[in-house]
Amino acid sequence: MNFGNILIEATAPIATITINRPDKLNALNKATIGDLHDAFTALESDPEIRVIIVTGSGEKAFVAGADIAEFSSFSEKEGKKLAQKGQEDLFDLVENLKTPVIAAVNGYALGGGLELAMACHFRIASANARMGLPEVSLGLIPGYGGTQRLPQLVGKGRAMEMIMTAGMIDAETALDYGLVNHVCAIEELQDYCQKLGAKIAKNSPVAISYAIKAVNTGFKYDTDGYQAEIKAFGKCFGTKDFKEGTTAFLEKRKPDFPGA
């Protein structure tokens, strides 16, 4: 897979997507969102890939926001379309991906960058990371899910403060808020994520995909997360992964999940 704005390194069972626009601090534009959409879709369909890590090139920024020059002259209609297409093509796609996605937040994660990190299933930050949603300082609000996912992760009050002040928080504050799961030195970030990914990859990919769906369902106002869990739990019993997992347990050996 060759892309203009991202790099992919896939060594089964883990693939790493690197947003590669260092001269723009890896800012998201339409082309980059398109590349990411295609990359995530392709990797999800690869049975050998069981974990995806997404990060930014260099040590300054994960993604320092959206490419403002690209939409500064948009009309209301164009702005709405921008947000809708972006959410559908990338942010909602990542959140609901069957393959777990870890955000390796190296440096600035601002605006659309933080929204991308929040769409991932969890986040690991380097000690130099800085996170925020500065949109109101531009006369905007977060448009790629930030007003929804941030309150889910840090609570309504903290989310309101972060959005309304347009300020940044450091990695330790993000850890305290529950916005990130772990913080480590920048030079250790990739190894840390790889080790976590390896732990995840040992488990049933089918069960993990059901778990992702059940957890996400619990955050939807019009659906019953408990019923979704019951349904997904039952479906697990019809999988080859369930048969392998229980057989391996009874035989006192490590399972070799087929992913089916």
Rank of each mutant, 00 (worst) to 15 (best):
T247A: 12
I6W: 01
D176V: 06
A260H: 11
T55N: 12
R123M: 13
A232L: 00
A10Q: 04
A166N: 07
N203Q: 14
C120S: 08
D92C: 09
G56R: 03
A15S: 14
G146A: 10
Q87I: 08
E251I: 00
L140H: 01
A66F: 15
V54G: 02
M162D: 02
L7Q: 13
L179Y: 12
E70G: 01
T147C: 06
E9G: 07
E161F: 07
V206G: 05
A109K: 06
A42I: 10
K252M: 11
K81T: 09
K60W: 06
K231H: 05
L110P: 11
E115D: 13
G4C: 05
A104R: 04
P151W: 11
K240I: 07
I212K: 02
G238R: 03
A104Q: 05
M131A: 15
P151E: 10
A109F: 00
S73F: 14
G225T: 13
G143T: 02
I230N: 15
V63E: 00
K85F: 08
K85Y: 00
Y177A: 14
A201P: 08
A117P: 09
N5Y: 01
I19T: 01
A31M: 13
K235V: 06
F122T: 06
G56E: 02
D224R: 00
A10I: 08
G225L: 08
A31E: 13
R50N: 08
C120M: 06
I169V: 11
F3S: 09
E76S: 12
A228S: 06
G113A: 06
T173R: 01
M131Q: 02
L28V: 01
E161D: 15
I230G: 12
F249T: 09
R130M: 00
L90I: 04
A159P: 11
L93V: 00
G139S: 00
E44A: 15
P258M: 04
Y177Q: 09
I6K: 10
T147G: 07
K195I: 03
H37T: 14
E48V: 08
K156P: 12
T246K: 10
M1P: 09
V94G: 09
T147L: 11
D38H: 03
F71L: 01
I14T: 11
M168D: 00
K98H: 15
Q87H: 08
E95Q: 12
P258G: 03
N20K: 03
I212Q: 04
I68M: 09
Y210V: 11
V105R: 09
F91Q: 05
N106R: 15
A127R: 11
S57W: 05
A185Q: 06
